[in-house]
Design a protein around this nucleic acid. Structure first.
Length: 627
RNA sequence: CGGGAUGUAGCGCAGCCUGGUAGCGCACCUGCUUCGGGAGCAGGGGGUCGCACGUUCAAAUCGUGUCAUCCCGACCA
């Protein structure tokens, strides 16, 4: 009940009466409180029960931007009084911020429930044993906040809940008859990020919705995954966000397949590509290169060329009179544990270390040091190539090299390069693989006529097919029809709640402040009473408009403050409530009020009832009619 | 953890180089005027100058250490 954001608790008056009666019984002294205080205390507003007056609410706006806020959403959330920082990466959700958070949570709940998931709530504090059992106690590193209880037992603040939910599953889900099942929670998590930043975008403490599906086999798990994929699309569509679902790397969570849901915003921390022709979209970490046909071997002879002090691709290409795409780039990488590899990509391409790491099955990857490079090649960086190595080194070439002949490579000697190098004749890579970074204008790997575009995105959701990684480690098994023990197939699905609200602001703002998409706005509509202290008719009219809107289930913030009009306008622009009705003396004398969309464009003079109707229409449209 | 920067009133900043009464704007309180895009005038409250140690007759100012915050990098469901 606490979390219900809108007016559906508007229920029958008898139900309401019952509630009030119970309240009176419990705490008599409160009866003499002002109704507004009374309602503030019990959070009744959120059930659409009260008149929300600006003067009685708490919206501490700031005229100036706090110096430590870098990105726009962080600045605006601070200025709009939505959040306040307590410590690095740890924030209080102030009343306005909380309202938006609750709105989004409710959308998530509704769609998760619609997709058949079941809500529960797991502990924030988790015992070390479970993490040791899943082998992540050792893997997780300092990001996992660990501590001891009074008996010196080890615990951590949950950064995620695979272990706990799998523990539940292995105790409670024993039969194929109990599946498929999908549990979710909306809960505060803690990750001790090395560098928290950008306000709610990358906090240490944050609210996340996480869901975990349990299925009898891989095919059934795929169905559960598809359901969540669909639910996620509906969730972000309902919020009115511009987003893409992209193929993604599974990272430390592991598993076989995953998609990230990215809200497009120029400040996004991730780069993603999408095809302009088909539906392919991927994180650049993961984006695939198009498979190409090999060309014939060239007939040029290998010639050693003196290239004094030409170390970079640009310098070598210019010196030889070739385009950068006619050269090759040679890099030496290490797994940090004694293994090394030489990677070859086209001169104008970049290596994607993550793809190479995954290809090699390494846990870590880093560039080799100059000393290590010297050891293997006998040359400092800048003149490296696959021919004439001092010590044997595995060579991985990007597929794009198949389309090249008569290559230019380093000669593994200072100030020397080789031209006319041909694969198969002069050297043979140990393997060809897709290891380069994909970028704008690259051809789509999935369709024939598509070209890739690059976007910046904020990761707000992530879905994984986990397979049996955790269920295997924690022995979460069930009995199938034949009474045989089988390992459960899992999937996990996260949504960053606070981050999504921040991303929505990142995507929807202007110079004056936030422009909330209505479904997650703290209020649907504000009613600004202009100079109401001087003009009782204004206050009465504003109040009446409020009452009519509220009766229709619209969440209204009535600005009854004794402030100058300019101050009120600035505040309302800043806090981003999508709809506004201005009630002023002059217009009112002619039977009109102003109707305005925060997003801009229209400023209509309408009779009060028409303005009210207009607001109701807008709200219904934005909330999708059925609600 | 590596590199860079900053800590002075609730917020934004000056003062520090050249040591000696802690200042400005916004916000806040009182009064009067004002009242359609962050008002004007007058008066007022609020600061262990991040913390510790040191140098000095004297430290916001100089030195050392420490903590915190921010930026870049590495890292990141």
């Amino acid at each position: 009940m606490w979390g219900l954001p809108v007016a559906r608790a508007k229920g029958s008056s008898s139900a309401r009466e019952k509630w009030f009666a119970r309240f009176r019984k419990i705490s008599l002294p409160m009866r003499c409180w002002k109704r507004s205080n009374y309602c503030k205390i019990v959070n009744l507003d959120i059930c659409g029960e009260i008149l929300m007056r600006y003067s009685q609410f708490f919206i501490p706006t700031l005229k100036e931007t706090p110096a430590d806020a870098e990105v726009i959403s962080h600045q605006l959330m601070l200025r709009a009084g939505m959040i306040r920082k307590l410590a690095a990466g740890i924030y209080t959700y102030m009343p306005m911020g909380l309202r938006s958070i609750r709105k989004f949570e409710q959308i998530v709940r509704e769609e998760m429930n619609r997709a058949g998931a079941i809500e529960l709530l797991m502990p924030a504090v988790q015992p070390a044993e479970l993490w040791i059992e899943s082998k992540r106690w050792g893997q997780y590193g300092k990001e996992l906040l660990r501590f001891h209880d009074r008996k010196d037992a080890e615990f951590c603040m949950g950064p995620t809940h695979e272990e706990v939910i799998t523990d539940i599953a292995r105790r409670e889900v024993k039969s194929y008859r109990q599946m498929p099942v999908n549990f979710y929670q909306i809960q505060t998590k803690f990750r001790d990020e090395i560098r928290p930043r950008f306000g709610l975008m990358r906090g240490r403490e944050f609210i996340m919705k996480d869901a975990y599906s349990f299925d009898v086999d891989s095919a059934a798990a795929d169905l559960s995954y598809d359901k969540m994929y669909g639910a996620y699309n509906r969730i972000f569509e309902r919020c009115g966000l511009n987003f893409r679902a992209v193929e993604a790397d599974t990272g430390s969570i592991g598993g076989s397949a995953s998609h990230e849901f990215m809200v497009l915003a120029s400040s996004g921390e991730d780069a993603i590509v999408s095809c302009d022709s088909c539906r392919y979209a991927a994180n650049v970490e993961k984006a695939e290169g198009r498979i190409v046909e090999a060309v014939a071997t060239g007939d040029a002879a290998v010639v050693k060329v003196h290239t004094p002090d030409r170390k970079t691709i640009a310098e070598v290409a210019a010196f030889l009179g070739l385009p950068e795409s006619g050269t090759t780039k040679t890099l030496v990488l290490s797994n940090g544990d004694g293994q090394f590899v030489m990677a070859l990509v086209r001169g104008d391409h970049e290596l994607n270390e993550l793809k190479l790491k995954n290809r090699l099955g390494w846990d870590e990857i880093r560039m080799a040091t100059d000393e290590e490079i010297l050891r293997f090649t006998g040359s400092p960086p800048g003149f490296l190539g696959p021919i004439g190595l001092k010590e044997p080194l595995q060579v991985v070439a990007d597929y794009s090299l198949l389309q090249m002949n008569n290559l230019v490579t380093g000669a593994n000697e200072v100030d020397q390069h080789l031209t006319g190098v041909n694969q198969g004749r002069d050297f043979t890579p140990d393997q060809y693989a897709d290891i380069r970074l994909i970028g704008a204008a690259d051809p789509c790997p999935r369709c024939d006529n598509g070209t890739l575009e690059v976007w910046r995105g904020i990761e707000v959701g992530h879905v994984f097919k986990l397979g049996t990684k955790y269920s295997g480690a924690l022995q979460a098994t069930y009995l199938d029809k034949d009474g045989k023990e089988q390992v459960i197939f899992m999937g996990c699905y996260g949504i960053g709640i606070g981050r999504t609200v921040a991303a929505a602001i990142e995507q929807n703002h202007d110079d004056n402040g936030i422009i909330f998409p209505l479904p997650i706005a703290p209020f649907h509509c504000s009613v600004v009473a202009i100079n109401a202290q001087k003009d009782e008719a204004v206050m009465t009219a504003a109040q009446d408009i409020h009452d009519r809107l509220e009766a229709a289930g619209v969440e209204v913030l009535l600005d009854d403050r004794d402030e100058r009009p300019g101050v009120k306008f600035k505040d309302h622009d800043l806090i981003g409530i999508p709809l506004r009705i201005n009630v002023g003396g002059k217009n009112l004398a002619e039977g009109k009020v102003e109707f305005k969309l925060r997003a801009g464009g229209e400023m209509l003079l309408l009779p009060p009832q028409e303005a009210v109707d207009r607001v109701i229409v807008e709200v219904r449209a934005a909330l999708g009619g059925g609600r």
